[in-house]
Design a binder for these strands. Structure first.
Ligand SMILES: [Mn+2]
Ligand SMILES: [Mn+2]
Ligand SMILES: [Zn+2]
Ligand SMILES: [Zn+2]
Lengths: 139, 139
DNA sequence: ATCCTAACTTGGACTTTGTCCAAGTCAACA
DNA sequence: TGTTGACTTGGACAAAGTCCAAGTTAGGAT
């Protein structure tokens, strides 16, 4: 995710060690961490980093579109660095595991004009629910 | 929603004034209130009703499948009495208005086997986002 | 290389949303 | 009408998130 740091520098961000560490923690595939999980992992690399800074940085990354906020349950929001490749989520009802998935077609196509009630519809988020292989085998 | 009260009696629930008032508040179409909104409206009819009882009753209604929990943003959960007619939600990004909508086809059909990663997929929730007619006209 | 300063970070107070519990109340049945 | 277990209550508590005054620092200017 060093390209992310480049893009942030391009936007005039000051590259502090805190921001660097948050960007490092968010690096990877299928990463959907809560703010507190991001903070816990950031603290391992930079023990003094504060919760407030993690929340600030995550909020800024969401603002500029580099990270997505995912609110799937009523619990803590999750932060998803996979913001440049449209996708949906598949969540295990047993253990909470989250996978990125790519459904076929345009989700908006399924919503007929008569069901739009004059709204200008611009997007759709789909949460598929089910049981992961491990949880399927433990009843 | 007096039929709901009948069903609850059938399940052996004690029909207290508190439960009656919560059921009354939830009556109607396109109702997606937060727990605190339910409490505020319940208090108008029954001033002594407590937050704890509203949370208890909503939780019980969700448990027995009479009310759905909708977690669309990272804020408070919303409680949806329209539990016996499968539907999805269309939300205005401007004012937060929520409409029930009915997309065509089975949402699960769009997720190919190769994108299921061994999960047993059992359901899908879709949140359509856009601007309602009022918010479209106010830039 | 050092200085300067706006931008950033920090800890803690505070808010919102939700859970839990001991004590008091009451709906339903006998 | 009396009894009793289910229900309700207020308040304490917890988790998730926001806000702020005070302290620190990245990076441009000198
Ligand atoms: Mn994702
Ligand atoms: Mn609904
Ligand atoms: Zn699982
Ligand atoms: Zn609107």
């Amino acid at each position: 995710m060093s390209d992310l740091l480049e893009r942030l520098r391009g936007r005039g961000w000051r590259l502090t060690s805190q921001r660097r560490v948050v960007a490092e923690v968010l690096d990877g595939e299928h990463v959907h961490l809560t703010a507190d999980e991001v903070h816990a992992r950031a603290v391992e690399r930079l023990p003094e980093i504060s919760r407030a800074t993690v929340y600030n940085t995550l909020g800024e990354l969401v603002c500029i579109g580099e990270v997505l906020e995912v609110a799937t349950d009523g619990r803590a929001k999750r932060y998803d660095p996979n913001a440049h490749h449209a996708h949906q989520h598949l969540i295990c009802s047993g253990c909470g595991a989250i996978r990125d998935v790519h459904p076929l077609g345009d989700p908006l196509a399924a919503l007929p004009e008569a069901e739009r009630f004059g709204f200008t519809v611009s997007g759709a988020e789909i949460t598929y629910r089910g049981l992961c292989p491990q949880c399927s085998n433990r009843p």
